[in-house]
Amino acid sequence: MFDLKDVSKTFTLHNQGAAVIEVLSEANMTVAPGECVALTGASGSGKSTLMRMLYGNYRAQSGVVSVAGVDLVQAAPREIIRLRREVLGYVSQFLRVVPRVPTLDVVAEPLLALGVPAEDARDQAATLLARLNIPKTLWDLSPTTFSGGEQQRVNIARGFIHPFPALLLDEPTASLDATNRNVVLELIADAKVRGTAIIGIFHDEAARDQVCDRQIDVTGFSPGCAA
């Protein structure tokens, strides 16, 4: 489902004396359907950078970043838009929403974008919000004023409402209490059973050990280490 071949990434900071930061070089990895793989490595080693490249958010200098057969390095914008709508989900660390939109609609949105009827989409959103213990009294409010943990659970609900075949998770259990952390781990386990290919960053080691089948240390992709 995910397939990286000889991927390199550098940042050129034009307004800081054209400084060049080399983050990844010749990265190779493959993740199959039903597999959950953790990215590990010290702070600054490039975990988030790699994940953003897998979402098509950062563009690679060279190599192939293939997700469900689409090479994100070469793909036209509309191919990436379609991939994100139908195939590739992403639970980022921070929630970014249009102010004023009620939480229920924020969560239902990925289904609405796929053409699911509004009532059906909202029902599914309600089910997921209830499972993630977001009080019903908050559903009609915009999540912009929610607590950190509540926003994170709204973000998770958005990422799991459509059964994406490929899923990226950036710290999905950080800042959650034990009960909600377990709900998220269940959601991940369920997705794996459905055949979802998952790549995640987990600082929570116990969570990582519980749901991940493998770990990939990103340090191995840093320019000095390239084999």
Binding site: T12, L13, H14, N15, G56, N57, Y58, R59, P77, I81
Partner: peptide
């Protein structure tokens, strides 16, 4: 030009970098 989040999060051109920063 590109996907909105690509251009804003990983700007390539000096002017875009200045605009975003």
């Amino acid at each position: 030009a590109g996907l909105t989040d690509q251009v804003l999060d990983d700007p390539k051109h000096a002017y875009t970098q200045l605009l975003v920063s």
